[in-house]
């Protein structure tokens, strides 16, 4: 089976929609088990391990994050946050057999109570075709103003 550029682009759109609609079980199923979600703290940061990042989460942490959102005593989600992605058409930068790289510019809005924040960011997806399905091998999200002081970011761009 081969994957077309359009299928890769559709995958990115579908993922954004899952996050906006809070379909986290489906979203977690997109990931390969050893994938990491990385959100650097520094502009053009190269090392996720030996420097502080905003996020560098394995599947255990991502599951924990998602599970927590619905916890009975998750007070910072009473009431719940909502998010909204507006994405530019993804660039498909690499197509190497069963692995692919896309880069997507987006505006991410997160809101709770009377507060709303807008983040401009670029998401890089490393995708892989495994058993006939596209999966996320790794995802890197660079926030344009990564060095600014932020309020809570509780959901996921």
């Amino acid at each position: 089976m081969s994957v077309s550029k359009d299928q890769l682009i559709d995958f990115i759109y579908d993922e954004a929609r899952m996050l906006d609609e809070g379909r986290y079980t489906e979203w977690l199923a997109l990931w390969l088990p050893d994938g990491h979600y990385w959100m650097p703290l520094d502009y053009k940061q190269a090392d996720p391990i030996n420097e502080t990042s905003l996020l560098y989460e394995d599947m255990f942490m991502l599951k924990l994050r998602v599970e927590r959102l619905n916890g009975a005593r998750t007070f910072s989600q009473k009431p719940k946050s909502r998010c909204h992605h507006v994405i530019q058409r993804p660039f498909v930068d690499e197509m190497n057999g069963d692995t692919f790289v896309t880069n997507t510019s987006m505006h991410y809005v997160e809101t709770r109570l009377d507060e709303q924040q807008l983040l401009a960011l670029t998401a890089r997806h490393d995708l892989a075709l495994v058993d006939g399905a596209l999966r996320i091998a790794n995802k890197r999200v660079d926030i344009l103003n990564c060095d600014a002081a932020f309020r809570n970011i509780q959901l996921l761009p």
């Binding site: 030996n50 502080t52 990042s53 905003l54 002081a149 932020f150 309020r151 809570n152 970011i153």
Partner: peptide, 25 residues
């Protein structure tokens, strides 16, 4: 250093679930 960086992001980042708990209080 890796453990220290992990602690910092897991507990004290604006994206940290532990940080969210505290800020709310």
């Amino acid at each position: 250093t890796a453990r220290t960086a992990m602690y910092n992001r897991m507990i004290n980042a604006p994206t940290s679930i532990v940080g969210h708990d505290d800020l709310e209080m």
